[in-house]
Design a protein around this nucleic acid. Structure first.
Lengths: 169, 169
DNA sequence: CCTTACCTTGACGTTGAGGTAAGCATTCGC
DNA sequence: GCGAATGCTTACCTCAACGTCAAGGTAAGG
């Protein structure tokens, strides 16, 4: 490939696509099917291909898959919602890329406003979720306290009824 | 506990089942189908019935449906997970109910330990989710800031290129 | 008793998020 | 240059979480 000499063995920030689907699948712990499925649904942009048609992914793609997984598994977003989010991210990158080239200013503005709107909606949604989770958490704390005190009560009763071994330490 | 006289006109803590499925559906904004489905899946205990077989729900059932909905929609738990949670709650109520009757002590201990375990797992899961969401939130904040500053940049450029109307106010 | 609105069970359809298998093409290691 | 490994597409399968009829039973007013 390109300059092979000076990459220190850690953190290959190189973004040329060089990973085949199998390796991506392994590293992200999703199946190849899932990767193709995400591509089909627009969650991953069509990767570059090698001559024969094999997909070639970049490190950035791996990051994306991992973000998708987190959004899905931990946070319970649907793929449709995740797609929206990922697209907002895309806009960000796109705008950054085209930042120097002075083309289609008003169009860029429109895109940017859209992205802002989407991002604000996401922000609001996440706020709600955090609030709900926090409330749940405190209820769980409370419940755990109750349970633990009951357990002690039960232990006491048992000691009352059958005073066999007492106070271990 | 069982005093019936002094309920002020607010907060009907009455727990006799008196609601038909249609009303429950309306008040909780889920379909009748969903209520039957939840019952089928063990998320709602089989409600009492009137002579002809019509289901009769209580206010407590409405609470439950609302909790299920929140767990599902806001937090992205599966019905299977929610069932576990709801069952832990059940154990709580059961144990409380049987608190006086001194029956099957060791069995109660076992149940209690199980409930504690489940609750602790839930607690951990929710911790993770909160952490992930909080992180996302800060990234969104960051992104929004970037977007907004870009917007201002764009506005400036526009003023640069075509200085038509300037500073409204 | 009749009508009408509400309820029952049962069975099949749908959508989201993938899994699995078949049959063929490509690439890699030697 | 060849075989094994890896990949490609197409098509059907699954599972969850319901939706949607269909074919009737029930409650309550007139």
């Amino acid at each position: 490939m390109a300059a092979k000499a000076a990459t220190p063995p850690v953190a290959v920030s190189d973004d040329e696509p060089h990973l085949q689907i199998g390796e991506v699948a392994e590293r992200t712990s999703v199946t190849q099917r899932t990767l193709r499925f995400y591509e089909e649904k627009g969650l991953l942009k069509p990767p570059t291909r090698m001559d024969g048609g094999f997909r070639l992914y970049s490190e950035a793609d791996i990051q994306r898959v991992e973000r998708i997984k987190r959004l899905q598994q931990l946070l319970g977003f649907s793929l449709a919602e995740i797609k929206e989010m990922v697209e907002a991210e895309e806009v960000k990158l796109q705008l950054r890329a085209e930042y120097r080239p002075e083309a289609a200013l008003s169009q860029k503005r429109t895109q940017l406003l859209k992205a802002i709107e989407v991002t604000e909606r996401q922000h609001a949604v996440i706020c709600q979720k955090i609030a709900a989770l926090t409330e749940m958490q405190s209820k769980l704390d409370e419940r755990l306290a109750t349970f633990r005190s009951w357990r002690e009560h039960l232990d006491d009763h048992e000691v009352d009824v059958k005073p066999k071994v007492k106070a271990k330490v």
